[in-house]
Design a protein around this nucleic acid. Structure first.
Lengths: 213, 213, 213, 213
DNA sequence: AATGAATGAGCCTTCATTCAT
DNA sequence: CATGAATGAAGGCTCATTCAT
């Protein structure tokens, strides 16, 4: 077990992270319902009981994973630098950031959207849910602000941002489930296209940016 | 048990359907991973062992359900009648048909997209997968044809149809996971908007319907 | 496993009883908290899961055992025949019946008094508790009626009956825990003595059977 | 943690007592089987491993607690002062002492009588058992001596003392298990009554204090 | 003495599936 | 076809105890 070696050189905090890594890997391979504490422990080089020194329950692991995933998402969006100072470039940079984040780590989509149990949030309390929603919202807020800068009225910016998010998520889902191959299309290309058209539309003088496009 | 009564008046084939109905109901209530054979049997008015007269395994039930779900999807799309004879109305009718199908029966989304990760690689053979893909493709083909009628070149029609599907799926996912409330938006409205804009775009003379919008 | 042989010749109802027998034996050997479903199953010749065809939970087994124990107690009391037609003989017969029941089956004392978990009723709902109390009360009622026949006023009969019960239970506890050997006494003798004195007291003319003795 | 503060001001011996206090508290709250070493440690301001510096095992703690409980019982009996110089008052004082001790600390009953069956045969050696018996005997000896002073012959005094003890224990058990409410009686009253009658009986000239009452 | 991470065995329970009837 | 008892494996979790530090 390389995990065991790592363990001894590691502090308590990073050992917790080790468990989290193992959990992420298992969730990735088996799905969230398919993942077992035993398997997570095995992968972390632990016996099952040891996990409970770090997390109170399986759901606590799930929550920690989810939480951490959203932090990384926000970090990615925050770090995204626009190509130039235009609002259009800003929108593109921020939107690409979240899209790329989910495209690169498709399992984060599952985590973030509870793509388990028929999408129904099961164990997560609504308090949790709200926290998670808030962080997801944070990740999308920069794009929304850029849309306002681009000339959309607030309500329209919100609407367009929602649509943009849905578009991206839909493409990612199609890609992730292999369905997009059916159409011989590429999710990234299609997203770029939608994004480009949105920027163009914003700049078009005839667009009534109050109501719909 | 009314199920038991139905059973005696029914032939072997429709008794199989009875089991399927029970399975659908249980999947709907408990999610796919949460559903148990015991519960399906109970709801069908059978004892657990009896189910195996009709299906080889739990996954076989899942497959049959999936298959049947796609048939109903296709039936819904086929039955959809456009408001008038225009290609635009045709596109709208066909696209709304599948959107409404999934909006009304959100659990079908799970089935159709293996949103329960565990099931995707485990049980479904790629042969199965191809058959399912084909039927999903069938359901979307009328929309694609309408896009061609609207003036899109075949490649562009395919691309637009894919984007449209992704958009709808993304909205449905946001709605179904409760995430859309975060944006105070409505999935149906946004979909109608996207669809309307697509038709307008098709009719716009300046649109080069070869490449992207 | 002789249990296995018995099983095949037995109907469902008696197989349930088989499990109950095994449970009683295990509770006897290991105590209630020490008993495990695995062990009960093993002793009944089953795999652990099979038990759950007969009982919903470990507590359900405990409840069934308790319930059945109280029925046997009542049966023993009901069946007890007095030596002659006098009220004194009636009291002696009925009181000896419950005393002998618990003396012969000391584990029933544990069951009936929750001599577990520091005597605290844990899983048993108060509804259960009331039912059990009622049946215990039933077993003691004949003695109380005999005391009334002996001339005690109802309130005094209740008090004397309670004291008699406590006396017997105390002796049984001392015997059961081996403490009585410390005194080189015999529980049965002491109980007989108390009972005899009680009857004598009832017959004594000077006794004011309204208040205490 | 105030426990931690106490610890530093305390010698090794009293640190052991600290653990014992914590154990008593936990046993009191959770029952003997329900108590965990973790919880005892937590309450003592220690980590689990530290407990093993003071006690070899959980059962060793149980034994120590039991032992100490019996010392307190003896102390209570020794300290009990009779109302006057009569043998009757002496008996009453001593008997009330142990009765009150168990009535006030019902958990001590559990400890003293192994009412948790599991522990009786498992951990306590017979050597232990004898020591405990001896101390319990010590606590009851003053009462026995008072009975002799009251005029009972030694054998009768032993018998009456045993019966008295059983009576008290039975009442306490009924009270502690809530069963006495079923009879709408009070354990203390009934005990006082029994005790009073015993003293009267001793003083009655007709009583042949050789055999039974 | 004390820490606290870790073990290993065990707990109750659930479930897809099999098979004699 | 249908029953339903039974299996065997697995699930999440707890706990007394050990041991390197």
């Amino acid at each position: 077990m390389e995990a065991r070696l790592q363990r001894q050189q590691a502090g308590s905090e990073s050992r917790r992270a080790l468990v989290l890594d193992a959990a992420r890997a298992v969730f990735e391979e088996q799905g969230i319902d398919g993942a077992s504490m035993r398997e997570i422990a095995r992968k972390a080089g632990y016996t099952p009981g040891a996990i409970y020194s770090y997390f109170d329950s399986k759901e606590a692991i799930y929550g920690a994973l989810l939480s951490e995933s959203l932090e990384r998402l926000n970090a990615a969006v925050t770090a995204a630098e626009p190509a130039d100072l235009s609002a259009g470039a800003l929108l593109q940079a921020k939107a690409r950031a979240w899209f790329t984040f989910f495209a690169t780590n498709p399992r984060e989509l599952d985590l973030g959207f509870y793509l388990v149990h028929g999408l129904a949030p099961r164990g997560l309390t609504s308090e949790w849910n709200q926290r998670l929603n808030a962080r997801l919202h944070d990740a999308l807020a920069p794009g929304e602000r850029a849309l306002v800068q681009l000339g959309f009225k607030p309500a329209a910016a919100l609407r367009e941002n929602t649509a943009l998010f849905a578009h991206g998520i839909g493409l990612l889902l199609l890609q992730h489930t292999g369905r997009i191959r059916m159409f011989r299309q590429d999710a990234g290309d299609l997203f770029a296209q939608y994004l480009g058209a949105l920027v163009l539309r914003a700049q078009s003088p005839k667009e009534q940016k109050t109501h719909a496009a």
